[in-house]
């Protein structure tokens, strides 16, 4: 673990009763990179990021963020240290206006500085292209726009580590293209951990890929290395048309 590593896990394990969802995961994420986490359904990807963000309590093992052991911290304290998390199943404040959704995300850091919050909200809205819908109730937005709002709420937190759990699920092709552009524009600003099924998105955005299979790390490397990896092909890529 060097100074350039923002997130690492050591022997991170989650067991539900006797069933192990994650076994001894050792994982290092260099600062500033876009890391994709891939693997077949049920490989334990969501469990893994759940344990990193604190939504799921680990059975054993440790999580380090910027060199500090955060394993014992509750979720909200981990988030407050600079981790943002977007949900696999869209989870926005459906009863509140879009603007307030983003303001809530920004406000935790900006506190009661109303002017700074307003500026941040305007910037984020502009960046994701939802300015003209800012006053709509989030629940009235289309599915695709709700997914984008979910990402916008992550951006508004100015995270140092941004975890996205299957952000492109259910998006149209055009929306996926826009998403790829957005993620690429974030390169250098923040570190991204991306769970993704769409291999096109993975190959276009990721600097590094980690493959999970049956709760264990199967392989890790650059997209080219992963593409060439026989074990990955057998376990995962071989079963899809990617």
């Amino acid at each position: 673990m060097d100074a350039m590593t923002i997130l690492s896990t050591r022997n991170l394990t989650k067991a539900y009763g006797g069933i192990r969802a994650n076994t001894d995961i050792n994982f290092d994420l260099p600062k500033g990179q876009i890391m994709a986490l891939i693997g077949p359904n049920g490989a334990g990807k969501s469990t893994f990021v759940g344990m990193v963000s604190g939504r799921i309590t680990a059975t054993s093992g440790d999580v380090f963020f910027e060199g500090n052991n955060i394993s014992k911290l509750p979720a909200h304290k981990r988030i407050a240290r600079g981790i943002a998390y977007t949900f696999q199943i869209t989870s926005v404040f459906t009863g509140l206006p879009l603007r307030e959704n983003i303001a809530l995300a920004a406000r935790r850091k900006l506190g009661s500085d109303k002017a700074a919050t307003d500026i941040k909200v305007a910037q984020v809205l502009d960046r994701v292209g939802l300015t003209d819908r800012a006053d709509m109730i989030a629940g009235d937005l289309s599915y695709g726009h709700q997914r984008i709002l979910e990402i916008a709420m992550g951006l508004a937190q100015d995270p140092r580590l941004f975890i996205l759990d299957e952000p492109t699920q259910g998006l149209t092709e055009l929306e996926v293209e826009n998403f790829i552009k957005l993620i690429k524009s974030l390169a250098g600003e923040t570190t991204i951990l991306l769970i993704e099924h769409n291999m096109d998105v993975v190959m276009k955005t990721a600097d590094q890929i980690t493959v999970l299979n049956q709760g264990e790390v199967l392989a890790a490397g650059t997209p080219a290395q992963i593409r060439a990896n026989k074990a990955v092909q057998a376990a995962y890529l071989g079963t899809t048309d990617a």
Binding site: P74, A75, K77, I79, Y85, T94
Partner: peptide, 20 residues
């Protein structure tokens, strides 16, 4: 406004870093 957020979706508020 954070309380209202908790009313609307507590899990989301927590994962925005609020001590709900």
């Amino acid at each position: 406004k954070t309380l209202i957020a908790i009313r609307e979706n507590e899990e989301r508020a927590r994962m925005l870093g609020y001590d709900t």
